[in-house]
Design a protein around this nucleic acid. Structure first.
Lengths: 222, 222, 222, 222
DNA sequence: GATGAATGAGGTTTCATTCAT
DNA sequence: TATGAATGAAACCTCATTCAT
C-alpha cells in the first residue's frame, strides 16, 4: 500500500473546479431568478443532447435550440459546451456521492451478506443506467486524463469505494482491501456500461446480477 | 439464459464490415505496392493521432499531415477518418483474437490455478495498455451502439471470454458461466482503462494484479 | 492662397455637432443630477478605455463594465460608442482651445523669442502627451475624413495656429504665414505622437525640444 | 546624443517579422504558382479595402470577396487580416527604403540647396499620398506600440532620416542633427497626412511646399 | 433611472471534401 | 498515384442593441 501518495478527495472536488462551476454570468454578475431559470433550461438541454447525440457531437447551437434560446444566450451562462457538462457532472456528483456511500454502508452485511451484495449490485446498475449519459462522459474524460472530470468521478465513487474497502478490511482475504474495492467498482461500472452488449451476447439481467453479487460478496465479505 | 438470441460471432466480424475494410482505392481499383504503402502510412498516422489527441478530435487533415501527405490522398483510401479507425480496430481484432484466447486457454488451470489466473490478468493488462488508444474507441463506440465497432469488440474478446466460460462451467459455482466470464472480462477491461486513476488513488500495480487474480481464480476455478 | 474657400471655424465647431453633443437622455428628457453623474462616469470610462485599448477596440460593453453599469444604461446617454468619444473630444476642444491660443500669444516674442519658442514647444508636447488618447482619435478620424472630428480638431488648434500665423505675418519670410503656421503645428503634433519612437531611435527629449524650438522660432520669428 | 541606446535597424526589419511574412500556406507548405497568384490577389484586395474602408473596418470576408475568393481561401495564406496588412507594409518598406534614401541623398545640396529641398518635399508628399492607406496603418500601429509595424516604419524612413541627419551634421546649427532629421521627417509625414485638412483651411499646395522646403533647407543646410 | 436578460446579426474560423492536374 | 488549391458548410463566438421590469 502507498497511502502516502493518496490524494485528498475526502473533502470534495478540487478548489480549481469552483471557478468553472459557479453560477455567474459571462459579465461576472450573478443572474437573477429568471436568468437562473434559463441557465437551468440550458443544463437540462445539455443533458438531453448528451443522451441523444453523445459527447462527441455536442454542439452549443443544438443545446441552445433544445433549450428554446439562442447560442448567444448560452454564452451568457457558460464559456463553452464542456463547461455545461462539467456543471452537470458536478451536480450528479453532489447529489449521489452520499447516496452511493449509503447504498454500500447501509446494508446488513453481517446478517444477510447475500442480500446486501444483491442490493448493492442492483442499486449500482440502476444508478448507472439512469445517468449513463453523464457517467459516460465522466469515464471518457477521466480516461483521457482530464483532471476536472477525473476528480469528480473519484469523488462521486469515493464514498462507496471506501465503504467497500472498510468491509473488505474486516476479513483477511490476503488482498489489499483498497485494491479489492477499486476492482469491484470497476466491475460494476464496466458491466453497467456494456449491459446491452452482454445481453445481446446472451447473458440476461438476472444471471448477471446474481453472478456479480456473488463475486462482490466473496470479495468484500469473504 | 437466452442462448437462442445469441448472435453468431464465432465466425468473425459481420459481413457488413467487409465492404468498409477492403483495401480498394476510391476509384475501385486495387492499389499497387506503392499505394498500399501510402495506405499503411495513413493507418499508422491514424493510430498515432488516436494516441495523441483521442477519438473526439481525430481529423482527416491531421492524419494526412502526420502521414506526410495531403487530405486528398487520404480520401483515395478511406471514405472518412472513422473508416481508418475501423480498419485499425479490425486489424487489432484479427491479430489478437486468438492470442487472447490462448492467453486464457493455454494455462495450466488444474495444476497451478493461481499462476494461471495471475498470468491471465497480467497478460490482459499488458495487452490493454499496449493498445489502449484503439481499445478506447472500441469501448466508446460500443457503448454508443455502433454495431460495427461492437461486433469487432465482441469478436476480439470472444475467444478469451468463451475460454473463461468453459472454465467456469467445469465447476458448479451456482452462477451462469457465461455471465461470470463476461463479468471477469469487464473487470479486467475497466481496471485496465482506469489504472492511472486507481494508482493515483493509492493502489499499486502489484496489489491490483494480486486482487484481480484472486477474484478471477475464485470466479472461474472455484 | 485661397482664403475664399476657407471654412468659418472662428466661431467654434459646426452646428451639426450640437445634436450629437447635447446631454439629453435617450428619451429626450434632460437627465437630473444622478443621471448626469452616470453620464459622466460613462465618459470617464470611455476615456479610460481609449487609453488602454485604443479606438479600434472600443466597445460599449467594456465601457459600461468599466463604468460599473450595464450596456443598457450606456444607451440611455449615447447612441453609440463613437458619440461618447465625440463628447470627450468636444470637451477637450472646449477646454483647451483658448489655453492653446494663449500658449502662443501670451509670450514675449519680441523680448525673448528663444524663450517663447521653447515654452510653446514644451507646452504643446505636454498638452499632447496628457491627452494623447483622444488626440489620437481626433487625428485618425480627421485623416479618414470624418467631418465632425476634423472640425473639432481644427477648432482645437485654431487659436494657436492663428496666433502663429499672425506672428509669422509680422516679418517677411517670403512664405505664406498660414502655411508656415500649419506646418509648425503639424510638426509639433507628429513629434508628440511619435516621441517614444524617436527616443528609441536615439533622440532624447531635450535635444528634440531644442531643435523644434529653433525651427519654430526661425519660422515664425525670423 | 545617446547613440548607445540606438536600436540596430541598419540591417532591416527584425527577425521575428520573418515568420509572419513568409509565403508558406496554412499547412506549412510552399504554395505553387497558382497559389502565389491567389495570395497576391488577396494582398491586392487587402490594399484596396484599406483604401476604401480603412484599417478599423478591415474584414476577412470583405477582402476575400474583393479578391473573388472565399474566406476559407484567405485563411490558407494568412492567419488573419492583420497579417496581410503586415505583408503589405513590409513590401512597401522593402520597395521604398532605398528610394527614399536616394530622394534625399541624391540631390545637389551644395549646388542648389533650394531646389534639393523642394524636390525632397515634393517627392515625399507624393510618396506619402500614393501610399497613404498603408502608411496610415504604419503610423497608427506604431503609435499604439506595435513593434512589428514600428520596426517597419523605422526601417522605411531610416535611409532618408539618416541622410538628413548627415546633411544636418555638415553645418553647425547648434542642434542635434539626429533630432533635426527626425523632426523634419515628422513634419513631412504629418503634413502629408493632413493635407486635405490644411487645404480646406485655406493653404494651397504650392504655398505649403514652398514653406516646407524653406524650413527643410534651413534646418539641414543652414 | 437603471438594468437584467435575451438575441439578431454578422464576422471568424475550421474542416471535410472535391477536382483538375 | 498524388496532391495543390479551392471552398461550401457549419459551428463558434462576440456585440450592439432592445425591451420589459
Amino acid at each position: 500500500m502507498s497511502d502516502d501518495i493518496e490524494i485528498p478527495v475526502e473533502s470534495g472536488p478540487s478548489q480549481e473546479l469552483a471557478a468553472e462551476l459557479d453560477e455567474r454570468a459571462a459579465d461576472g454578475r450573478m443572474p437573477g431568478r429568471r436568468g437562473l431559470a434559463t441557465r437551468q433550461r440550458l443544463l437540462d438541454a445539455t443533458a438531453e443532447q448528451l443522451e441523444t447525440v453523445g459527447y462527441r457531437d455536442l454542439k452549443v447551437i443544438d443545446i441552445a435550440r433544445a433549450a428554446g434560446t439562442s447560442p448567444a444566450t448560452f454564452y451568457q451562462y457558460f464559456p463553452d459546451a464542456e463547461a455545461a457538462v462539467l456543471v452537470l457532472a458536478a451536480a450528479l456528483t453532489e447529489a449521489w456521492h452520499e447516496e452511493l456511500e449509503a447504498l454500500v454502508a447501509g446494508r446488513d452485511w453481517s446478517g444477510d451478506p447475500a442480500g446486501a451484495a444483491h442490493e448493492v449490485v442492483e442499486g449500482f446498475l440502476t444508478f448507472w443506467t439512469d445517468h449513463r449519459a453523464i457517467l459516460k462522459v465522466l469515464d471518457l474524460a477521466s480516461m483521457e486524463g482530464d483532471f476536472r472530470f477525473r476528480d469528480l468521478r473519484t469523488w462521486l465513487l469515493n464514498g462507496a469505494t471506501e465503504a467497500l474497502r472498510d468491509l473488505a478490511a474486516t476479513h483477511d482475504s490476503g488482498y489489499d482491501p483498497k485494491a479489492t474495492a477499486g476492482i469491484v467498482v470497476a466491475m460494476l461500472a464496466h458491466v453497467a456500461n456494456h449491459r446491452p452488449g452482454l445481453e445481446r451476447w446472451g447473458v440476461d439481467h438476472d444471471a448477471l446480477v446474481a453472478a456479480m453479487a456473488g463475486m462482490l460478496r466473496h470479495a468484500v465479505a469473504g
